[in-house]
Structure formats: structure tokens, C-alpha cells
Nucleic acid binder design. Structure first.
Lengths: 348, 348
DNA sequence: TTGTATGCGTTATCAT
DNA sequence: ATGATAACGCATACAA
């Protein structure tokens, strides 16, 4: 008996199955990759032997041989931002259905780290899904040149992408507010460099203009609860009666900031969020523009898989509509907003 | 000139670098894996050639050769449960520092899917981190027998694990309530089969007993907002004055359910959450037991990396203490809780 | 339909 | 300190 060159890890290989089934290694390989080339008889025999030994094709060896790892990478700026978990979850589930495992990368809102992550993971995946609001366009294109890459919420010509159609929802929201009688509205913005923010702001401006409303912009640099709280203070000494926030998180912060000053929502200020990721769980439940982020993730995966399996070479641009969901944070404006608010802030 | 057997993918390989640098492939390999064996001179020359060509060692080939993929898997029951995003985020960041890429698996709260995921990813990772409250113990052990596996919030003898020490925090919470004057408390439980829930319930019972308080159990089968809302109705016709919920999400649901019936928090009912994942963002801000879930993730990764790199063979049991964070949902109980509450529910 | 032989890109063993 | 060469486990072109 001769010593093995490398200590066997315990995982059975194709060779042992071949031996057990009395066929060649190629036949075992075909049983799992191209069974249509084989007799159902031999397939069965090999399958049996494999099951017996607990054999499973080694994806690493397979990847080296074929150049396809059957993995995909999903890169997001911040897992903890409530917008992403539903997206990640849905994307992961869809990838799983298509037999792809997913690498998760959190770029930590630092675009340069995305770069590192991407190149490091690149060799192990067949393609990327990138939700990066701010990474340099030419860097993205450089990555896309190496592997198929799907963009989420970023509209770069020539690259396949899944986008939210912000327009519909924002227009509905502003129309809703206008119908309630609001004339002066604030948009509490997110990160200025973010595509999503630009879209939302643009849509809000357009809709407000068309309806003859005044729209005031308030900056909340980071899309966080704290930013929303801070932004709330800027709303205080104005005659604004309704606020649209960059996202639900910011809206939640605005609500808290307002409540801290003794304002009641929606009596003293109507608030509209965006995304519908935590809107149903705020109190009062937040009126918001639903973004269907789960579907965004699913479609991105489908796009990628389609490209990988059928080698499509176009750059589809999938647009998923948004939709206003009216809950309990919007109502008619109070009669004398400015007077009331001044007394309140004086008291605080 | 001869045709290449396979169309070159464009990624330079070790051979081309060797050629360019005028050394053997082995030397190139050593430059990136064991540079201490080489002259700084040759290292430099190889590095230059590699940079020139844009060469990066192929992790797949490396994995096949060494049997180590430098990947880890992180399996959670539900990415969208707010407990996990901070944990995932922190774990990913820590793994990244140690040069490990992470596969993310969402078992969708269905233990049998965890199994599929695990075996499918197994060959591509050096180890697992498993946050699975309900997967069969012997299945877990079977997986652990193949690869290093770290458990999160699950206390299985002989396996390395990172746990929350629920006791401290729960005891603090109940003591806090007792000091405020509460005598009758409810524990709104999570999934009965979940280790975390069992720990929390047990700790609550123990602490209540010691302080001579009455503790009533109310079941919220799923750890969701909706379950909390439903559970709130069961609190209505009781003389309970304070509630501890399985987690923040359930607590948030309880708060909403109570508020819907016109109860004010904390005046009419004190509420305590668990995890501190969204407690700071509720309104009013939720008193909760902070679980430091980010640290849980970090420590799990460190445990795994330690085992992978230094081949430790023990099964450390890391315990991370919890701590009460008092915010605004707890106060002294009202004088006549039962009477007031009856009139309110009658009105609703 | 099945077997043989070779390559995928790297590391590891054994020389030199 | 460096080079030649055999694995690693699988897929595939070519033969039969």
C-alpha cells in the first residue's frame, strides 16, 4: 500500500466514484454536468455510487476547469441601511433558485473600498451586482469590462441596470399633498452625489412646479435618522406644512425631531417617506413612496443570470415603478401654521 | 504562431509573469505566497512585471491547489430581521480585514434550506458562521465535522460559539421596572424553539421570581412587528403595567398596538425591548436591552479566523454581556391601571 | 454512448 | 535562493 501524496480530506472525488461505479471519470463528470449524453442506465448507476459515497462535484475544481464559478457578487454601500436588507434577501433567494451562491460586499459607504472588494472577489464570480450610488463612473466601467455587471439604481448608458422610476411615486406624493391643500413643501435631501437623491429631488421639483407649489430644499447629507432629526429643526421657523424626505429613515428622523419640539404629526406637519422599508412600522404609520426594493434585487439577479447563461450582449434598462402608499402621516394643513409654530419653538 | 487551446480570458497568468520577469513560475508563486524565501531583488523584479501586466493570483486555482479558499460563509435565518444587518455588516468588515471574502446565506427561517445552502457552499469556504436558532443539533454537528463552524447565539457543547449573556441585561431590566414600582410584568415571547427566546424567558422568570414580581407569558410566535401588535391586544384587559418583549421589533409592534387602543407609553404601559437595533429610532425612544450584535459578528469571525490560521482545536465559548439602556418607554406605573384601561378599550 | 488524454492556474515537493 | 514537475478535482476535445 502506498502513501497518498496529499492527505485525503475525506471528501470523495470523481475518481472514487468512477471506481465504485465501474466507469471512467469522464462519465462521472458527465453524469453531473451533461447527463443528456448518457444512458439513463449509467446515469443511475453513477448516481447511486455517488450517493453511496456522499460525492458532490467540487465547485472549485469545476470553476478552474470551466472558468465559471457559478457565484455572483452583490456589493452594497451599507448593509445596515434598511433599504438593503430586503433587497439582499430577495436577491439571494433568487440567486439560490438559479444555483448561484452570492458573495456579499459592504463597501462601507467608502467608494475606494468598493474597488478593493471588487478586484478581490472578481476572480471567484461570474458577474457583479453593484448598488453603488457614488463609485466613479469610469471605475465602474472598468469593472464592467472584465465581468458582466448589473447596476442597481444607477443609470449608466451601455450597462445593464435595474432602476426605480422615482417620477411616478414622487408625483403622486406631491399631488396628494397638493390635494390636501398644502402649498409650501420641503424636500429633505439625501447625499447630494447619489443618483437616487438627484432623481428624487428632480422629480419633486418638477412636480411641484407643475402644480404651482413652493418647494424648499433642505440638506441631510447622510441618509440617516440623525440627519433627519437635525433637518427637522430647520423646518421649524418656516411656513412649510409638508415634508418629503429622501427615504424612510430620514423621514423617521424628521418625525422624531418634530415630535421632540412638541409638533404633532400629521396635524402640524405632514411627512412623506421613501422606500417603504420601515414606513409601516413607524408610529404613526408613515405615508411613503414604495420602492419595491425586493423586486429590484430580484430583477438585477435575473438580468445577470440571463446574461451569464444566454450570453445576451445588450444592456437592458429595467425600470420598476414606485407608488405612493398613503398611511397616517399626511393630512390637511393646519390653519395658522406659522403662528402656532413660533409659539411652540419659543417654548422649547 | 500556434493557436491557443483555450481562448485566453484576458487575465494574465503566472506563466506570463514568469516569462516577463525572466524567472520560473515557482518564483512568481513564491513572490505572492512566500516572499520570505526570495531575494528582495527578485521579488521586486517579479512585482514589477506583475504590476505591468496587471497580474493578480487567481484565488480559484489557489484554492484548488491548497485546499483553502480564503472564503467564509455566514448563514443567517433572515437578513431582513433588524438584528442581523449590523451583525452581518460588522462580520463582513472583520472578515475583509483578515482577507476573507464572505458568502451570505439566508435560510429564510426554514431550517431545511440551511442544509442545502451549507452543503452547496461548503466546498468553497474554509469555515462557517452559523446563526441558526432552530436547525437540528445533529445536522449542525454533521456540518461542523466537515469544516470549522462557529455558532452564534446557540450553545452547543463542544462547538465554538459566540453568545449573548442575556441574564445580565434582563435582570437589569426587571430590576429597573421593579424599582419604578411595577409588580405585574408581561414577557412577550419570540419563537418558542429559539435558543435566544428560551434564554430570555428563563432569565426573565428567574429575575421576576427573585424580586417577587408576577410574570405573565404572552406568545408572539414569530419575531415580527405584526406579532407584537397582536400580542398587545392580550395585554389590554389585564392589570399588567410593564412589558418586556422578545426583541425590539416585537416591542415596536406592542407599542403600536397599544397606541392604536389609545394607550400612552410609558404612562399607561412601560415597554422594554431587546437587541437595541431600532430602539433609538422609535418614538418615544425605546428602553431596551442592548445586545451588541455587531460585536457578536466580529467575535465570531475572529474565532473562526483564529481556528483557521492557528489551527486551534478547542471550542471556545465567548459570552458577550448585554446591558440595559434606559430611554423613554419606561416610567412609574399609573395609579389605577385596570380601571383606566377598561374604559379605554370599551371606547375603542 | 463511453473512454483517453490534456489543460485550467496555482502550490508543493524535490532537486540543484 | 531558484527551477522542474507533479498534484489539486474537474471538464472537454478527440478517439473509439
Amino acid at each position: 500500500m502506498f502513501a497518498l501524496t496529499k492527505p485525503n480530506t475525506g471528501t470523495p472525488t470523481i475518481t472514487e466514484v468512477a471506481l465504485a461505479a465501474g466507469v471512467s471519470r469522464a462519465t462521472v463528470s458527465r453524469t453531473f454536468s451533461r447527463p443528456e449524453l448518457l444512458t439513463s442506465e449509467t446515469i443511475e448507476r453513477v448516481r447511486a455510487a455517488a450517493a453511496q459515497l456522499g460525492y458532490v462535484p467540487n465547485p472549485v475544481a469545476r470553476a478552474l476547469s470551466t472558468g465559471r464559478a457559478h457565484n455572483i457578487a452583490l456589493i452594497v454601500p451599507d448593509i445596515a441601511n434598511p433599504f438593503f436588507p430586503p433587497l439582499i434577501r430577495a436577491a439571494q433567494a433568487r440567486a439560490d433558485e438559479a444555483s448561484y451562491a452570492v458573495f456579499l460586499g459592504d463597501s462601507d459607504e467608502k467608494p475606494e473600498r468598493e474597488d478593493v472588494l471588487l478586484t478581490k472577489i472578481a476572480a471567484q464570480v461570474d458577474g457583479f451586482i453593484l448598488a453603488s450610488p457614488r463609485l466613479d463612473e469610469h471605475r465602474i466601467r472598468a469593472h464592467a469590462a472584465r465581468r458582466p455587471l448589473i447596476l442597481i439604481n444607477r443609470d449608466l448608458e451601455g450597462l445593464p441596470r435595474a432602476l426605480m422610476d422615482v417620477d411616478v411615486g414622487i408625483t403622486q406624493a406631491i399631488t396628494h399633498l397638493a390635494e390636501l391643500g398644502h402649498r409650501r413643501i420641503a424636500y429633505v435631501s439625501g447625499p447630494p452625489a447619489s443618483w437616487a437623491n438627484q432623481q428624487r429631488q428632480k422629480a419633486a421639483v418638477k412636480a411641484a412646479k407643475r402644480l404651482g407649489l413652493t418647494l424648499m430644499g433642505i440638506a441631510a447629507l447622510h441618509p440617516t435618522y440623525q440627519s433627519g432629526q437635525k433637518a427637522a429643526t430647520k423646518l421649524l421657523n418656516t411656513d412649510i406644512t409638508a415634508t418629503i424626505a429622501f427615504d424612510d429613515l430620514v423621514a423617521q428622523g424628521v418625525m422624531a425631531g418634530l415630535a421632540d419640539r412638541g409638533l404633532q404629526i400629521p396635524r402640524d406637519m405632514s411627512v412623506v417617506g421613501f422606500d417603504d422599508v420601515l414606513a409601516a412600522r413607524t408610529y404613526p404609520p408613515l405615508t411613503t413612496v414604495a420602492a419595491h426594493c425586493a423586486e429590484l434585487g430580484v430583477r438585477a439577479v435575473e438580468l445577470l443570470v440571463e446574461i451569464l447563461e444566454n450570453g445576451r450582449n445588450e444592456a437592458p434598462r429595467i425600470v420598476i415603478p414606485t407608488k405612493l402608499v398613503v398611511r397616517a402621516t399626511t393630512s390637511k394643513p393646519a390653519k395658522l401654521p406659522s403662528a402656532r409654530r413660533k409659539s411652540l419653538t419659543a417654548a422649547s
